[in-house]
Amino acid sequence: MTTALDSLPLLTGLSPTQRAAVAGVSTVETYAPGHRLFDEGGVADRCWVVLTGCVMIDHTTPGSGRVALQSLGHGELVGWSWAMPPHRWHFGATVVSPTRAVVVDAVRLRELADADPELGYRVALVMLETLVERLQTTRIRLLDLQRQP
């Protein structure tokens, strides 16, 4: 498992010991297109790091159904609602192409982070990096929409 984590740029800030700890609460799973990873409002008890394939983040809008917001691929983190109470998903996610991902048990990861503040700090940095990237992507999309006639 650590070899799968070692190859992910997202986790390069973790030491080998920290990656091993994360690997200890993780599995690798494969999903077929159409598989629903999670729905808005559900319990956020895991997260995924995509190894191959594509996952679409969506939001359910009354009258319109599910609206695609962003696609995530290799090396990207899917799901961060597990990090903050009340640990409920704010969006949904569906697999759109055959996908292989590291699935992290977020409950156990929070326990590891609580027990090891250095690991907790490193995980927080990964989350912040992901959040900044998503905000930048959203900003660019909004600017593009503003430019359209």
Rank of each mutant, 00 (worst) to 15 (best):
residue 103 V to E: 11
residue 103 V to W: 03
residue 103 V to D: 08
residue 104 V to K: 04
residue 105 D to G: 08
residue 105 D to H: 06
residue 105 D to S: 12
residue 105 D to T: 10
residue 107 V to C: 08
residue 107 V to P: 08
residue 107 V to S: 10
residue 107 V to G: 13
residue 108 R to C: 08
residue 108 R to L: 09
residue 108 R to S: 15
residue 109 L to E: 13
residue 109 L to F: 01
residue 110 R to L: 15
residue 110 R to E: 12
residue 110 R to N: 12
residue 111 E to G: 12
residue 111 E to P: 09
residue 111 E to K: 11
residue 112 L to E: 06
residue 112 L to M: 12
residue 113 A to G: 07
residue 113 A to Y: 01
residue 114 D to I: 12
residue 114 D to C: 13
residue 114 D to S: 15
residue 115 A to I: 02
residue 115 A to G: 09
residue 116 D to W: 01
residue 116 D to M: 02
residue 116 D to K: 00
residue 117 P to N: 14
residue 117 P to M: 14
residue 118 E to G: 13
residue 118 E to C: 09
residue 119 L to E: 02
residue 120 G to T: 03
residue 120 G to I: 05
residue 121 Y to R: 06
residue 121 Y to E: 09
residue 121 Y to A: 09
residue 121 Y to P: 00
residue 122 R to S: 14
residue 122 R to K: 15
residue 122 R to Y: 02
residue 122 R to T: 11
residue 123 V to N: 00
residue 125 L to C: 15
residue 126 V to Q: 00
residue 126 V to I: 12
residue 126 V to L: 08
residue 127 M to D: 00
residue 128 L to R: 01
residue 128 L to S: 05
residue 128 L to W: 01
residue 128 L to A: 11
residue 129 E to D: 07
residue 129 E to G: 11
residue 130 T to C: 07
residue 130 T to N: 04
residue 131 L to P: 05
residue 131 L to S: 13
residue 131 L to M: 11
residue 132 V to S: 09
residue 132 V to K: 01
residue 133 E to Y: 07
